[in-house]
């Protein structure tokens, strides 16, 4: 397509925006979660990716097995003392900008397991952006959290996270 034809096809559809908004829009609509299932909540996380609920509507269906390709860590389930260092390593391996959703009561606070074996809240080792209550939260809850996160990402733009 020649340059004239391109200009023709665009017609008068010119959009002006700030770079921050554009980047925020792009990032917010393509949040790729790391495939990081821990316990019962992970099953509901899988359910979110299936046809019934369909997380793909929000641009997040690409669950990446490698942390280096993902923007979002969904901590779906209880984090044991043995798993905690590994979780932190995975978080460190993710490239900036990155976000964390703490899914379920266990990840957020330890849930019903107030004992020696579990980390009482994943926010002790990684910064959490959105907490989801529930044991397990419904898939719709996860979608809701994702939408809240998208709002934040869009508002954040290109600025580094505070």
């Amino acid at each position: 397509m020649g340059i004239e034809a391109l200009a023709e096809s665009l017609g008068k559809n010119i959009l002006t925006t700030s770079l921050g908004k554009l980047v925020g829009w792009g990032r917010g609509n393509s949040v790729w979660p790391a495939q990081f299932g821990l316990a019962c909540c992970a099953i509901e996380m899988i359910a979110t990716a299936t046809a019934g609920v369909d997380i793909a509507r929000f641009g997040s269906e690409a669950f990446r097995a490698s942390p280096r390709q993902s923007d979002l860590m969904i901590v779906s389930g209880r984090v044991s003392q043995k798993m905690a260092p590994i979780l932190r390593t995975i978080y460190d391996q993710m490239p900036e900008p990155k976000w964390v959703i703490s899914m379920g009561a266990c990840a957020s606070t330890g849930g019903v397991f107030n004992n020696y074996a579990l980390l009482q809240g994943v926010d002790k080792i990684v910064p959490v952006d959105v907490y989801i209550p529930g044991c397990p939260p419904r898939p719709e809850d996860l979608l809701n959290a994702l939408m809240i996160l998208q709002e934040r990402i869009k508002a954040q733009g290109i600025l580094p996270r505070q």
């Binding site: 316990a39 019962c40 209880r78 044991s80 043995k82 590994i86 019903v112 397991f113 074996a117």
Partner: peptide, 25 residues
């Protein structure tokens, strides 16, 4: 052991009817 939740210990700290909640998990 990466998902060791201490369920058995937790049950010892819960009453008989409370324990049901933990068995689910």
């Amino acid at each position: 052991g990466y998902l060791h939740t201490g369920i058995e210990k937790q049950m010892e700290a819960l009453r008989w009817q409370q324990g049901v909640t933990v068995t689910d998990r």
